[in-house]
Nucleic acid binder design. Structure first.
Lengths: 141, 141
DNA sequence: CCGAATCCGACAGGATACTG
DNA sequence: CAGTATCCTGTCGGATTCGG
């Protein structure tokens, strides 16, 4: 049950002075760092979904944000949108190959999160207990 | 130059109905999805850094945001903070083992970004050309 | 069913000035 | 050097309403 096998035992993963690399990370994180993109991608990773289906599968998302999120994903070639000219209209969304390739990365994130959640949570609790008045989460309240 | 070797050829990476997994992804992405955390982590991946060193290494970050970012990272046990009672004060920041383990994940993100940046950018350009008036990036302008 | 348009609140984050 | 405190703005995202 040791955790150390994930700790640093080898070379620096992120080489110094590689601005492009830093830039790439930033772009990706910023892209999927919004409130809903990841949740929509994960749901679409299961297969083709229609609009209402997605809205039900992602609790709390508004119509507006679902639309916006899907448009952005479509714009970035992560999601394909197919309109069937039925009445009423019917639209299907599915991940592109690029979008699917992202799910591998998301899996890595999930694994890291699962492995270190306890450590993070405990540290967080200790920090909050020691500094009850400091509010670092957002602006200085 | 085919890109298909990264496409989906195997099983679904993200199993259906795994709420915990989804939750883990969200937490991680939300945590490092802010404007500065990744940049600070990448810089600290090079080694121990002092406050001013970090500020110079991360162009554009304000004192306020550097402080906030470092506090949050410290709170989550991703960064260690060491104060030397010299005059003037001197403080050193370094990644914890947990923090270092995150750099592996960031490397994955960087690799994905590097590999798919062209695809995304081209799609984005095409989308914008086709819908010049639609502004999906933020609120409806 | 699938959206677009409008209004509005909350918060992240920048600029600046001040402290130890 | 290493922060803190205050003010202010831009942007994200929710609620609601209307259209195809």
């Amino acid at each position: 049950m040791s955790v150390r096998h994930t700790a640093v035992t080898t070379a620096p993963v992120l080489p110094a002075g590689d601005e492009e690399l830093v830039c790439d990370i930033r772009e990706v994180v910023q892209r999927i760092g919004d409130r809903w993109s990841v949740l929509v991608i994960v749901e679409l990773a299961q297969g083709v979904r229609r609009f209402r289906q997605l809205q039900r599968a992602v609790p709390g998302i508004s119509q507006r944000m679902l639309t916006l999120t899907l448009r952005r994903l479509e714009r970035d070639a992560l999601v394909d949108r197919t309109v069937y000219p039925t009445v009423p209209a019917q639209v299907e969304y599915e991940l592109t190959d690029t979008g699917h390739s992202l799910t591998f990365v998301l899996k890595m994130l999930a694994d890291w999160g699962a492995e270190h959640r306890d450590t993070v949570m405990e540290s967080r609790a200790r920090w909050d207990a020691k500094r009850p008045d400091a509010d670092v989460h957002h602006d200085g309240g």
